[in-house]
Design a protein around this nucleic acid. Structure first.
Length: 939
DNA sequence: CTGGACAACAGACCTTTGTGAAGA
DNA sequence: ATCTTCACTTTGGTCTGTTGTCCA
């Protein structure tokens, strides 16, 4: 089945729960299912921001849609945006039992996995790569779409291939705006997604299940008061032995349920495994965060968006393409001896709580045994058995420094093989698509692909190999990990990076290299805890200048994160968990004096990182670098002052701190800032004046050579060369004016002391009438026809006249209003007179030249007030002002005469009973007892 | 293959204070 | 003679960011 356009989409049935419209989104959602938002400040603002962004997006897309341009990129995502945001709020008070039922619904409300998938995989990709594969995805889309303007969706091309959606992306001329909106909305989605996972990590059931699996000696970690990263290694070894990353999806399951499934099967996607590690830490009363790279669609258009996420990371997210084939799983399982003990344990612990009927073959289960765990207690990560590690997790060998390759070819082949197995479903499907052959065979058949090794220089561990097939799609990129707060890790404690997927502990400085090796960038790294979030990109990104331009406007991002940061710091800052015995009370309730909190210490740490970024190696990076500058890349109006210190060199050019870069301006520009150049200051910089055709000025310049120099150069001055503007004071009510008899009011700062700027209209006339000295205020220039025209607005007067003038203006305004009213009334009278005169004239002419005038009288007689039951037709002054009248039943042959006879001493009375109304002509005929009648057109 | 340097290009920015003829 | 209105003509050079190409 292949559906295209909205026509066919309309036929799809709606999901059970109606989707709220844009405007009602928040309220409806909150009402639905009784789910409340925990923190109004949090979700309120977040939702508002989300709504705003999504609303803009919709409007923008609708606009583009109506202009017959394909902008499917935004359209596809809108419905998901709604849903993801709902999901975000929905999870705050999450009850596992309820969700179990939700998840089991065959087609429920669009869940976030679809959103995630689509947003990760759909945006900005080539049509051929666009596979968003979920039926409910399309249905959710349909549902929302129906509530929106149908017509605006016609241009989006969504073709369905069985269970997949093809999205075509065409770049529109104003796509930058759209790209930014999509970027923002996508960010919000991923934020919400992170909160979902974080919420799942707090699930007591999952935590309890994890604890039940944990060997007794590892349980002691919960009593450790002085935690170091080293102490976590046995735990991570055990975890890594027992939980495996697979190209496996938990389908459409809601995160809590997906986590539970992964826990039960001990196999899951990277996100699930990382989340389980977080849950485990939290179960052990450790302060832990779930950290995720928000792999968001590009901020700028025309940048292809290839999600970092490999298919393996989409465990929770459903994907369009089938996940790793059964064959692959079997292949993996064949390598791994099984241990069913854990599985049984797992089953018993979860069987009652989880209704999952899915069970992966036991072959996917654990292959490690308890004894090995015991042995590994004091084992470092790098001593992990090579073969086992490789088999357990293809990526785990990355961290293995002691691994000795047999032969280069063999190693490459093995790596390729394992990568192929661990690669995402999308990856495998892409291989199929691109090579047109079996994914397995394609990956196996290319052992000659070069292996790139990225050596990460770790602080705690030895250099690690990060491997990826060069030229192939990105695989193994870390997307999710945990951060555990280790109080003994440094003087003040430290958040320690723990990547359970790749078995890396305290490898924060390796993340960037690993991500870079996968041809990705970490633009946003966000840590989630306590339903909140905090941007910790600085911790992992050493080359901030590379990502700064790819990040959204920091003001917006900070405002989005502000409420989430509070939640996050509330959860991790001081008292960690209410159920914990390990109270780390570094927070406010210590005493009144300032106590540095974890959050504030981390802020300082991140800020320090921002200020100690290493010098870039390429010159262009200095162009807009926030910390460093090369003189070469300064702009026309920039200068180094002071010129030093030199922080280093780049390609022979000295590197200066950015703080030395000062902006220089002309005297005129400083004037606008309310500043003037100090006397006897030499220009800090001279610019060559552009060679404009000077016309007459050239001739003058020839005559006065002494002025040529200043004409040819623009003198620029720095901030240190200026002082506050010293304008002449207003004296004796006289406004100091310039040589043009006006005051240049670039800003309020430019007003001479003792004067005010009055902007009301006709101010000049009012001041003139009161004989108050004033000067026109020139507020700027308008450029028309290649010339500058001064723009005047209001006047400048001495401050003491302000009130007088304002009063006068008020009186003037009142007077003008009165005059205008009188003028209007006079004009109305004139027009009435004109109208009635013309009517009478017309009647007279008709009477004189056309005896059958009555039949031809147009029905254009308008009675202004048709509710009036009386009409006075006598007018002693002007008989011609009688309303147009005609007698139908008693016609005088000489109407002119009849009209000329004043109807004195009689006032026509039109009684209701004598009225008649002609429906056809809408004419109401009123009759007086005297026989006089008036026709009135009903308005 | 990658990154740096450079050129080309497009868009943004800055510019910065009437006059003469015709008609009322 | 004086005042008011209207047409005139639609810059253009430089900076800056982006993109493509070449080369080490």
């Amino acid at each position: 089945m292949r559906r295209r356009g909205s026509g066919s989409r309309r036929t799809s049935k709606k999901p059970p729960s109606p989707s709220p419209s844009e405007g009602e989104m928040t309220s409806q959602h909150n009402a639905e299912g009784g789910n409340k938002i925990q923190s109004p400040s949090d979700n309120g603002s977040l939702t508002e921001i989300s709504q705003d962004a999504v609303g803009k997006l919709l409007r923008r897309a609708n606009k583009v849609g109506t202009s017959k341009k394909k902008t499917t990129v935004g359209l596809c995502n809108f419905p998901f945006l709604f849903n993801i945001l709902f999901s975000s709020a929905r999870t705050v008070e999450f009850v596992p039992e309820q969700n179990g039922t939700q998840v089991l619904e065959p087609i429920g409300p669009l869940n976030t996995s679809e959103v995630e998938h689509c947003s990760r995989s759909s945006i900005g990709k080539d049509p051929a790569e666009e596979k968003c594969g979920h039926v409910s995805l399309d249905e959710g889309y349909m549902d929302k779409k129906d509530e929106l303007d149908d017509s605006d969706w016609e241009d989006g091309t969504v073709a369905m291939d069985d269970h997949s959606v093809t999205i075509e992306l065409n770049v529109t001329p104003d796509s930058s705006e759209l790209a930014e909106l999509v970027h923002k909305a996508h960010l919000l989605c991923l934020l919400a997604r992170g909160r979902l996972i974080d919420s799942a990590c707090d699930d007591p059931l999952i935590q309890a299940s994890l604890l039940s699996l944990l060997p007794a000696h590892l349980l002691q970690l919960s009593n450790v008061t002085k935690l170091t990263s080293k102490a976590l290694r046995p735990l991570m070894s055990w975890f890594h032995d027992n939980f495996h990353v697979k190209n496996y999806t938990n389908g459409e399951k809601e995160p809590h349920f997906a986590l539970a499934s992964a826990l039960e099967l001990r196999v899951g996607g990277p996100e699930e495994i990382a989340a389980l590690s977080v849950a485990l830490f939290r179960a052990l009363n450790l302060t832990a965060r779930f950290v995720s790279i928000l792999d968001v669609s590009p901020l700028k258009p025309d940048q292809s968006f290839r999600p970092i996420a490999s298919g393996s990371s989409k465990g929770i997210f459903n994907t369009s393409t089938p996940m790793v084939s059964k064959k692959k799983l079997d292949f993996m399982s064949l390598k791994k001896p099984l241990s069913c003990e854990k599985e049984k344990l797992c089953e018993t612990s979860l069987a009652h709580s989880l209704k999952s009927k899915k069970r992966i073959a036991p072959s996917n289960m654990d292959q490690s045994k308890d004894p090995s765990v015991a042995e590994d207690l004091n084992h470092s990560v790098t001593n992990f058995p090579i073969s086992e590690a490789q088999h357990i997790n293809p990526e785990s060998h990355i961290t293995d420094k002691s691994h000795k390759p047999k032969r280069k070819g063999d190693l490459e082949f093995e790596m390729q093989l394992e990568m192929a197995l661990s690669v995402t479903a999308i990856g495998s499907s892409k291989i199929k698509e691109e090579s047109g052959e079996n994914a397995d065979s394609s990956s196996f058949a290319c052992p000659s692909k070069r292996i790139k090794r990225v050596v990460g220089e770790g602080s705690s561990t030895s250099p690690q190999l990060i491997s990826t097939a060069v030229g192939s799609r990105r695989v193994g990129s870390p997307l999710y990990w945990a951060e555990v707060y280790c109080s003994e890790e440094s003087l003040t404690g430290k958040w320690v990076h723990i990547d359970a997927v790749n078995l890396i502990i305290d490898g924060e400085d390796k993340v960037e290299a690993m991500v870079a090796a996968c041809k990705a960038s970490l633009r946003y790294v966000v840590a989630f805890a306590g339903q909140g979030a905090k941007d910790v990109t600085r911790r992992y990104c050493m080359k901030w200048y590379k990502i700064a331009s790819q990040r959204v406007n920091s003001t917006w991002w900070d405002s989005v994160l502000a409420p989430l940061r509070n939640l996050e710091s509330g959860a991790t800052g001081g008292v960690v968990h209410s159920r914990t015995n390990q109270i780390i009370s570094t927070e406010a309730n210590m005493n009144d004096s300032f106590v540095p909190t974890r959050s504030s210490l981390e802020d300082i740490e991140l800020e320090t990182r921002a200020l100690t970024e290493p010098l870039p190696t390429n010159q262009q990076a200095y162009k807009n670098h926030p910390l460093y500058a090369l003189e070469k890349w300064l702009t026309r109006y920039q200068i180094l002052h002071p010129k030093g210190p030199i922080l280093g060199f780049c390609s022979g050019h000295p590197v200066y701190p950015r703080t030395c870069v000062q902006t220089v301006m002309t005297k005129q520009r400083w004037l606008r800032e309310g500043l003037q150049v100090k006397p006897n200051e030499h220009p800090a910089k001279e610019l060559k004046r552009p060679n404009k055709p000077q016309k007459v000025q050239d001739i003058e310049a020839d005559d006065y050579d002494c002025t040529t120099d200043s004409k040819e150069h623009i003198n620029l001055y720095g901030k240190w060369q200026v002082e506050p503007l010293n304008l002449p004071h207003a004296v004796n009510g006289i406004v100091p004016k310039n040589d043009r008899g006006q005051v240049d009011v670039w800003s309020e700062k430019c007003l001479p002391p003792g004067t005010v700027h009055l902007r009301f209209p006709r101010a000049y006339e009012v001041a003139k009438r009161l004989e108050i000295d004033s000067a026109p205020a020139m507020v700027g220039f308008e450029f028309k026809n290649g010339r500058a025209y001064p723009v005047h607005e209001g006047i400048v007067v001495c401050a003491q006249f302000k009130d007088v003038l304002l009063e006068a203006f008020a009186e003037e305004a009142e007077r003008l209003k009165e005059e205008e009213k009188k003028r209007d009334e006079a004009q109305a009278l004139r027009r009435w007179y004109q109208l009635l005169s013309s009517i009478v004239t017309r009647q007279r002419l008709n009477n004189r030249y056309n005896n059958n005038w009555t039949s031809e009288v147009p029905n254009d007689v308008h009675c202004i007030n048709d509710n009036v039951s009386r009409a006075t037709v006598c007018d002693s002054n002007d008989k011609n002002q009688t309303p147009r009248q005609h007698q139908t039943d008693k016609r005088d042959t000489d109407l002119d005469t009849s009209l000329s006879i004043p109807v004195k001493d009689h006032e026509h009375v039109f009684l209701k009973e004598y009225e008649s109304f002609d429906m056809e002509t809408s004419l109401l005929t009123k009759r007086c007892q005297c026989g006089f009648s008036v026709q009135v057109e009903e308005l």
